[in-house]
Structure formats: structure tokens, C-alpha cells
Computed example of a mutant assay.
Amino acid sequence: MNTTATPATPEARDVLDRALKLSAPEREVIARRLMDSVAPPPGVYESEDALRAELLRRIEDIESGRVKALTYEEAMAAIRKAREDRTS
């Protein structure tokens, strides 16, 4: 996900600029609401079949090598680095 993308319209840029001036808790609430409006929350699928298909797709991605699974340590190191990069 590209977190540095600039909204295309002046209205969207204005909303983003104003939102970024809010406190972290306020931004978190807004971010969650926006994410829920474009994609269901993680773990929410239309049906058991949809969940099963998603799991099978992810397994195939890993087994085929298209996606590399990370260990817990690798994932946490990546998260820490991303947080550091964001604050520096």
C-alpha cells in the first residue's frame, strides 16, 4: 500500500490535510471508518465458501513462491523499521 499517495481532487486533498491535523486517536477512528467503507474488516467474509477460497488462495500463493511467509521475528522487525521510517 502506498501511504504517500496524494488525493486527486482538491476536495480530497483538503479533507486529508484537515484530518492530518487531528489527534492520533481521532485519526485512528476516521481511518478505521474509511477502511471499513472500502473493504470489510479483516476476518469478515460473505460466506464460508468465500473464506475457504481466500484461505486456499493464500496457501497457493505461499506454496508457489509468489508470497514469502515471514517468521514472527521478521514481521516484527519489518513493523519496527516501518515505524522508525515513518517517524524519521
Rank of each mutant, 00 (worst) to 15 (best):
I59F: 15
A8I: 14
I62R: 07
A39V: 10
M76I: 07
E74A: 11
D14Y: 11
I30T: 01
D14N: 14
R57P: 03
D85L: 14
L56R: 08
D61H: 01
K68R: 13
S47R: 15
S37H: 05
T6F: 04
E26G: 00
E74W: 11
T71P: 02
S47I: 14
M76S: 01
I30H: 05
A69T: 01
S64C: 09
I59N: 11
T3K: 05
T9A: 03
L56A: 10
V29E: 08
R52Y: 00
R66V: 08
T71M: 05
P25Q: 13
P7I: 02
A69Y: 00
L51G: 02
A77Q: 13
R66E: 00
R86I: 04
A50D: 11
L51D: 02
A78K: 07
D36E: 11
A78F: 03
S64Q: 03
E60L: 12
R13G: 05
R57M: 07
S47V: 12
P25W: 12
I59D: 13
E60N: 12
E74R: 09
D17G: 06
L70W: 05
A39F: 13
S64I: 04
T9V: 05
D36N: 12
D17T: 09
D49E: 15
A77Y: 01
S37K: 10
D85R: 01
A78S: 09
S23W: 12
K68T: 05
E11V: 13
D17K: 13
L70P: 00
E60P: 04
E73D: 09
V29W: 06
V67W: 07
R18L: 10
A75T: 01
R86K: 15
T71N: 01
S37Y: 00
E48Q: 11
P41C: 02
A31L: 15
A50P: 00
S88Q: 09
A77F: 03
S47K: 15
L70V: 02
V67I: 06
M35C: 09
E28M: 14
S23R: 14
E28G: 03
R57K: 06
D17H: 09
S88T: 09
T3L: 14
K81D: 06
I62Y: 03
R58H: 03
E54S: 14
L70T: 01
